[in-house]
Protein backbone atom coordinates (compact mmCIF):
# COMPACT_ATOMS: atom_id res chain seq x y z
CA UNK A 1 0.00 0.00 0.00
CA UNK A 2 1.11 3.51 -0.72
CA UNK A 3 1.96 6.44 1.53
CA UNK A 4 0.13 9.73 0.95
CA UNK A 5 0.95 13.13 2.39
CA UNK A 6 -1.97 15.46 1.75
CA UNK A 7 -1.70 19.21 2.28
CA UNK A 8 -4.85 21.16 3.10
CA UNK A 9 -4.60 24.95 3.21
CA UNK A 10 -8.33 25.67 3.45
CA UNK A 11 -10.99 24.70 5.95
CA UNK A 12 -14.66 23.76 5.57
CA UNK A 13 -15.33 27.31 6.77
CA UNK A 14 -13.78 28.51 3.47
CA UNK A 15 -15.30 26.02 1.06
CA UNK A 16 -17.53 22.94 1.23
CA UNK A 17 -15.07 21.30 -1.20
CA UNK A 18 -12.75 20.84 1.77
CA UNK A 19 -15.19 18.27 3.19
CA UNK A 20 -14.68 16.32 -0.04
CA UNK A 21 -10.91 16.59 0.48
CA UNK A 22 -11.30 15.16 3.99
CA UNK A 23 -13.42 12.37 2.52
CA UNK A 24 -10.70 11.67 -0.03
CA UNK A 25 -8.17 11.35 2.79
CA UNK A 26 -10.53 8.98 4.59
CA UNK A 27 -11.14 6.90 1.45
CA UNK A 28 -7.39 6.58 0.86
CA UNK A 29 -6.89 5.47 4.47
CA UNK A 30 -9.81 3.04 4.29
CA UNK A 31 -8.16 1.60 1.19
CA UNK A 32 -5.27 0.48 3.35
CA UNK A 33 -2.93 3.34 2.53
CA UNK A 34 -0.84 5.22 5.09
CA UNK A 35 -2.26 8.74 5.02
CA UNK A 36 -1.10 11.97 6.60
CA UNK A 37 -3.16 15.17 6.39
CA UNK A 38 -1.10 18.30 6.96
CA UNK A 39 -3.08 21.43 7.86
CA UNK A 40 -1.46 24.71 6.89
CA UNK A 41 -2.47 28.37 6.40
CA UNK A 42 -6.26 28.78 6.95
CA UNK A 43 -6.47 24.99 6.99
CA UNK A 44 -5.50 25.14 10.67
CA UNK A 45 -8.77 26.82 11.65
CA UNK A 46 -10.21 23.35 12.29
CA UNK A 47 -7.43 22.56 14.77
CA UNK A 48 -8.96 24.25 17.83
CA UNK A 49 -10.66 21.86 20.27
CA UNK A 50 -13.59 24.27 20.29
CA UNK A 51 -14.00 24.41 16.50
CA UNK A 52 -17.09 22.75 15.04
CA UNK A 53 -15.55 20.17 12.73
CA UNK A 54 -17.77 17.15 12.22
CA UNK A 55 -16.15 16.17 8.92
CA UNK A 56 -12.63 16.36 10.37
CA UNK A 57 -13.64 14.38 13.43
CA UNK A 58 -14.35 11.37 11.18
CA UNK A 59 -10.67 11.12 10.25
CA UNK A 60 -9.68 8.65 12.90
CA UNK A 61 -7.52 6.28 10.85
CA UNK A 62 -4.94 8.73 9.56
CA UNK A 63 -2.30 11.07 10.93
CA UNK A 64 -3.28 14.71 11.43
CA UNK A 65 -0.55 17.36 11.50
CA UNK A 66 -0.73 21.14 11.80
CA UNK A 67 1.89 23.65 10.74
CA UNK A 68 3.46 25.42 13.70
CA UNK A 69 3.95 28.73 11.91
CA UNK A 70 0.34 28.87 10.64
CA UNK A 71 -0.94 28.24 14.17
CA UNK A 72 1.33 30.85 15.71
CA UNK A 73 0.50 33.34 12.93
CA UNK A 74 -3.20 32.99 13.88
CA UNK A 75 -2.67 33.14 17.64
CA UNK A 76 -3.66 29.52 18.18
CA UNK A 77 -1.67 28.13 21.08
CA UNK A 78 -0.70 24.49 21.49
CA UNK A 79 -3.03 23.94 24.46
CA UNK A 80 -6.02 24.98 22.31
CA UNK A 81 -5.42 22.24 19.75
CA UNK A 82 -7.33 18.97 19.43
CA UNK A 83 -5.51 16.07 21.07
CA UNK A 84 -5.31 14.06 17.84
CA UNK A 85 -3.49 16.82 15.92
CA UNK A 86 0.28 16.99 16.18
CA UNK A 87 2.06 20.32 15.71
CA UNK A 88 5.00 20.04 13.31
CA UNK A 89 7.37 22.15 11.24
CA UNK A 90 7.11 22.67 7.49
CA UNK A 91 10.06 20.31 7.08
CA UNK A 92 7.54 17.48 7.50
CA UNK A 93 6.44 18.09 3.92
CA UNK A 94 9.88 17.84 2.34
CA UNK A 95 10.83 14.86 4.49
CA UNK A 96 7.77 13.05 3.14
CA UNK A 97 8.64 14.02 -0.43
CA UNK A 98 12.24 12.90 0.05
CA UNK A 99 11.09 9.41 1.03
CA UNK A 100 8.96 9.07 -2.09
CA UNK A 101 5.61 9.65 -0.43
CA UNK A 102 2.93 10.75 -2.88
CA UNK A 103 2.48 14.37 -1.87
CA UNK A 104 -0.52 16.41 -2.96
CA UNK A 105 -1.68 19.92 -2.15
CA UNK A 106 -5.45 19.46 -2.16
Amino acid sequence: MAKYFLIESRSPFDSPEVNNNYQLALDLANGGNQVTLFLVENGVFVARKTAQTESLDKLTNLTLLADDFSLRERGISTDEIKNNIKVVEISSVVEAMATGTKTMWL
Binding site: S9, V40, E41, F69, E89, I90, V93, V94, M97
Partner: peptide, 13 residues
Protein backbone atom coordinates in the same frame (compact mmCIF):
# COMPACT_ATOMS: atom_id res chain seq x y z
CA UNK B 1 -0.37 32.56 1.36
CA UNK B 2 0.59 29.56 -0.77
CA UNK B 3 3.55 31.57 -2.07
CA UNK B 4 5.05 31.98 1.38
CA UNK B 5 4.35 28.36 2.27
CA UNK B 6 6.02 27.20 -0.94
CA UNK B 7 9.13 29.23 -0.13
CA UNK B 8 9.14 27.78 3.39
CA UNK B 9 9.17 24.31 1.84
CA UNK B 10 12.07 25.24 -0.45
CA UNK B 11 14.02 26.66 2.49
CA UNK B 12 13.33 23.51 4.53
CA UNK B 13 14.44 21.31 1.64
Amino acid sequence: ARTTTAFRMMEAA
